[in-house]
Design a protein around this nucleic acid. Structure first.
Lengths: 225, 225, 225, 225
DNA sequence: CATGAATGAGGGTTCATTCAT
DNA sequence: AATGAATGAACCCTCATTCAT
């Protein structure tokens, strides 16, 4: 036994020598951010690893200490951005006295606004564009992003149908119909934001106008007048 | 109609000698078809010029006799497939006694079915995915495919509103709302057709169910006044 | 049918357009030669593809039109040099009245001299050095180069034993013993030719001196009884 | 004997503080062993410094505290393994009454067996393979390993000639002839040990059978009957 | 001394494009 | 027009080496 018995350090951790884990994590995060930006700007294949590194203020080789290859970087980055985007976003329920339309306006519209402001909608485009070449990524996207939303829509749709706010139960059967306008607006912006940007939240709101029956009169809360 | 070979112009005697104009056009068409197939399968950058040539039964160099470079091939091919897809598709109007919903089912559903069966929806995905890198192509797409459709939808929407078939004039203001479900279904199929394909036409039809007010009972026509 | 019926060309071959097969073969040969030289000089991993191309007077990418990758180039080149080295080298038999030692001097020594003069012994070193990383190559080497030689040695050894020219049948059991001195001299030259080159043929000849019993004097054949 | 740590010399107080000289030496030895193993397995350029460190249970950077670079590590390691292999191996002389062949069997065969069992023959292959790129190493090898052996062989050969045990003085002139079969067998095993391993000692022994004349009758010791 | 994250030159390979035939 | 060998810029990835901790 060659190691002299060290007195127990103040911290519980074994106190490794060399760089700290925090620094490592920070580096990874910097790469992740840089990569996301450039992937969003140019797509997968037009993104050069060296540009990612440069934008992160690091050297090319450093990327490979944190991600096995370009595809892994891509998947990792998107997985994480999905997680971050969804994290801490409770799937809220309507209040008892609230119309479903009012509820959606209250809850969904701000989220859409925020997603658009932060550029996060680009992720949708990216997954759409590159998904076919990254089946695992597409599957993850579906599992962590799509399915939860669809489940939630189903609940809301069921309530709306029960309350007579929808004309049919179609939305319960195909919950993605509720999402379609927002998705489409996001994709539109991918192509035409320069000349004719769409406000995703407004598009969604307008869609609600088309969808929902005015609440039946005589109900105390949804009163029109 | 494929591009007619340019007139000889100033160059010395380029006609006569060698292949006939028909053969040239045939070669060009073969390349176009091959290219479209592979672009749809793999996207722009994963498509190799040599594969296009091989699938067309020609040599790599031949492509460059008909298209200046890969980007031009891509744009040309998509421009032509758009034209072909739209060509001879009259923008029909509803019959006087027909509900708008019935009209859309009669006219749009078969088109969607055909587009899906022929794989033409892939073009939508392709434009979505590569459009940002090909602004001209995106512009062409908008001009030849999107805008005409939106204009048409606006007309139909106006009629439907006037007939009280829609609850709001939202569709007149944002005609893309009508298209959103079909587009979304097409994109969904780009990612998940292997495990859970969607029938685009059905999605559209279901959407109509949600959208349209049943025509006022007991009145033969929808006309209110 | 679009092709006009060509009159049968003078040559039997279909007369492809583009570069001739002879030119292609010549290119391949140039690459092969350049590659062999550099592999011999520096070994496998220190050889850069760009250097091979440059030495052949070609561009880097050209190599990949003829060989799938660096390992394939290596194996291909060595396979071919083996074939060329062995091609048209008849496995001769001793004349009836010739001592085995005289036979070997007559037949083997010139071959060794030629192999040394042409630098072909480098191949032995190369196979020795890189063989462990190229099992297939090692196997080919054994099959095309080693085994035939050993079979031949066995024949010669049997004759020599029968004639009483060898003191034992050891050489029949381990024919590689006859080859060992030449191989060793070749390898020596790989390391020390600069300061103390060995003449492979002389080493072999000296070895024969040690090995062979002088034929019994006065007897025309070696047969003792 | 590993290299003793250099005396502090001019640098400021490098001793005291941190590990003891013994520990340093132990670290160096661990690296040396790990490096030898991997160099033998994969050759010089396929050996990664990180693998050496890992196998030694140390970090990559640590290697550079003990060896200036990869080439130095390689040379150092081989120099030491040569020294260790040869250390304490007395160059024995035959007993007065012993035939040279018997002597060689008694003395050399066990050494060969041991070298083979320990895998030390790999060093021969390694020097053969990489020697051309490491001239100094090749020179060291020649000085510490080859020349002493050759000098010793010369002595033995002279005695054998004098005693009439050899047919010629060829072995005195080219002492490497005695070593050739063993070397060749070792190299053979580098390529074909998986499918047809050779027992180096047996090959050597068989070679002796071919080489040595039965001692002339009438001599007291080597007597046959 | 030891660590391991960071560096960045280097090299293998791909593939759009050219051009002699 | 058609061919396909040749080109060479581009780019991903490796790994010996450095250095702050």
């Amino acid at each position: 036994m060659t190691r002299a018995p060290k007195p127990p350090a103040s911290k519980a951790a074994p106190r490794r020598r060399g760089a700290s884990p925090e620094k490592t994590a920070a580096t990874r995060r910097a790469l992740s951010r840089a990569a996301l930006d450039i992937f969003l700007e140019r797509g997968f294949s037009a993104t050069r690893m060296s540009d990612v590194a440069t934008r992160a203020g690091l050297a090319k080789g450093t990327i490979y200490l944190h991600f096995t290859d370009k595809a892994a970087l891509f998947e990792d980055v998107l997985r994480e951005v999905m997680r971050d985007t969804l994290a801490g976003r409770p799937m809220q329920r309507p209040r008892r006295d609230e119309t479903t339309r009012a509820f959606l306006q209250r809850v969904v519209v701000p989220v859409l606004r925020e997603l658009q402001a932060s550029g996060r909608f680009g992720v949708v485009r990216l997954v759409m564009a590159e998904g076919p070449h990254f089946p695992e990524l597409a599957a993850v996207y579906r599992r962590v992003a799509i399915e939860p939303v669809l489940r939630w829509v189903r609940l809301i749709a069921a309530r709306a149908s029960a309350r007579g706010e929808l004309r049919s139960d179609a939305l319960s059967r195909l919950p993605m119909l509720l999402v379609a306008p927002a998705v489409m607006a996001a994709l539109w912006n991918g192509l035409y934001s320069a000349t004719e940007p769409l406000d995703v939240a407004s598009v969604f709101d307008t869609f609600l106008e088309l969808l929902f029956v005015a609440p039946p009169p005589g109900r105390p809360r949804a009163a029109r007048g």
